[in-house]
């Protein structure tokens, strides 16, 4: 029984990891563009972006999942996601990417704005272009500063993936819960915690390694 459960949970965990990795791949860069938008000198860009960030950060992710999945059908009469599992997965991924990109954008914004203006000016008087100043001087300093808060968000994301099951996306909790109905046992559900712990432990090591790699400068 233990092996059956473990295999089933592992299969569910693959869904979890798939959602986790794809969310990061899309939301980390998207967050950077959103942060540029939220710092734009043009009010027509800045304020709409900040409004969206307020909505996304101000409402529960679970609600966003439901609105994004059911919303198009209810409000516009078109089910853009389809009703098969892969459609639901894409809907969940969409919600996660938007949500995490907004959180990441605020971390980026804090990181970028914490770099002393003297760093930009030093680059300017050395005749560097704006792009060179950002890529060669600012970026690495920003990365160093945002690694701890990003690692926090990433570890939160591992556990947030479990919310995807409100729109019936298969992940590890879903599979764990299935044993309650099928076999009348609850321990597989509790057992899922071990998977989360091991995975977030690995991530903690990874981020610790990155932090150490960047500790050669201050």
């Amino acid at each position: 029984m233990f092996w059956t459960v473990t295999l089933s949970l592992l299969e569910g965990f693959l869904g979890t990891i798939k959602l986790f990795i794809l969310t990061l791949i899309f939301s980390l860069p998207l967050g950077l563009f959103i942060s540029f938008g939220s710092m734009s000198k043009y009010a027509v860009i800045k304020y709409p972006i900040r409004f969206i960030i307020w909505i996304i950060r101000g409402t529960p992710l679970m609600l966003q999942l439901l609105v994004i999945y059911y919303g198009p059908g209810i409000f516009f009469g078109v089910n853009v996601w389809g009703s098969n599992p892969s459609g639901r997965f894409v809907a969940a991924l969409f919600a996660f990417v938007i949500n995490y990109a907004c959180y990441f954008s605020e971390i980026y914004r804090g990181g970028i704005q914490s770099i002393p203006v003297g760093q930009y000016e030093a680059g300017q008087v050395l005749g560097m272009t704006k792009r060179q100043i950002f890529n060669k001087i600012i970026l690495l300093q920003v990365i160093k500063r945002i690694v701890p808060p990003i690692s926090n968000e990433v570890i939160t994301l591992v556990k947030d993936t479990s919310l995807a099951r409100v729109i019936a996306v298969y992940e590890i909790i879903w599979n764990g819960q299935a044993f309650i109905k099928s076999s009348g046992i609850i321990w597989p559900l509790f057992y899922t915690g071990a998977f989360y712990l091991i995975f977030s432990g690995l991530l903690t090591f990874l981020f610790g390694y990155i932090e150490k790699k960047l500790s050669y400068f201050r």
Binding site: G118, Q119, A122, Q124, I137, Q141, F217
Partner: peptide, 18 residues
């Protein structure tokens, strides 16, 4: 290009830490 005619040493050095 105009800036390259001048060099500037800042009060706070502003070296690139990395």
């Amino acid at each position: 290009k105009m800036r390259l005619h001048f060099g500037l040493v800042f009060q706070q050095f502003n070296l690139f830490p990395q």
